[in-house]
């Protein structure tokens, strides 16, 4: 899933200091699972904003709504009838949902209520860890299903570097060395000899480096 973190309330307040009405808009997908922007967080943020506006002596109408998805125009249509009641939207969706909401409602100011961080998974409750950078050309078959592009601080395709110590990365004892994980996996699979295959120079044009990406599936287009 896409993992996000709640922005500090002071930062959100700074964004909406001019508005007379604001809709706090949550999303039922990834940000609900990572507890940064679902219905519960919408309620918490809306209440906090109401209290702070009251303390500031400002009359601001704070609305609440959580959509099934903000990355889907169909669900975004559900707020068409209510959106005119608000000057602005604080979206608690990921960066995709925030931008998609703004694209759907061009006359409304849309502000981010979260920092979108990475594609990852929960290691345990309250702990999320990155697993994929969406490079557009998956190499996991060669690396025992451990991604060095994501998990090696130097994204080395032929690692580990000389800084790998006791299974940890040189940048921090709290970070696992991706190449230690790869080697452990290859060993467990009886494929350690694969380690000696040189990973070819990567074509990064399918990555961010190639410019904004788009996928067109002709078979699905109507």
């Amino acid at each position: 899933m896409i993992v996000a973190e709640r922005k500090p309330i002071e930062e959100i307040l700074g964004q909406v200091k001019q508005v007379r009405s604001v809709l706090v808009l949550g999303c039922n997908e990834c940000v609900t699972v990572c507890e940064a922007g679902g219905k519960k967080e919408v309620g918490v943020l809306a209440s906090a904003l109401r209290m702070l506006f009251l303390q500031q002596g400002r009359e601001v109408n704070v609305g609440e709504r959580t959509l099934e998805r903000q990355c889907d125009t169909e669900y975004l249509e559900e707020i068409r009838d209510m959106i005119d009641a608000f000057d602005a939207v604080v979206s608690l969706a990921c960066g995709v949902g925030i931008q998609f909401t703004a694209e759907r409602y061009p006359s409304k100011a849309v502000y981010p209520g979260v920092n979108t961080c990475f594609m990852g998974a929960a290691l345990e409750r309250g702990v999320w860890s990155e697993r994929c950078q969406g490079c557009g050309s998956c190499i996991l078959a060669a690396t025992g299903a451990v991604c060095p592009i994501t998990r090696c601080a130097k994204r080395l395709l032929n690692g580990p570097c000389g800084g790998s110590t006791a299974g940890k990365c040189e940048i921090s004892k709290d970070v696992e060395c991706a190449w230690q994980l790869i080697i452990d996996r290859l060993k467990a699979l009886g494929r350690l000899e694969d380690y000696e295959r040189l990973s070819p120079i990567k074509d990064w044009s399918t990555d961010r480096a190639g410019g904004p990406r788009k996928i067109i599936r002709e078979d699905l287009r109507s």
């Binding site: 580990p160 790998s164 006791a166």
Partner: peptide, 13 residues
């Protein structure tokens, strides 16, 4: 550096 077992294979690479 670790892991020691791949230090020589790494040189070979």
């Amino acid at each position: 550096a670790d892991p020691f077992e791949i230090r020589v294979p790494r040189l070979a690479k």
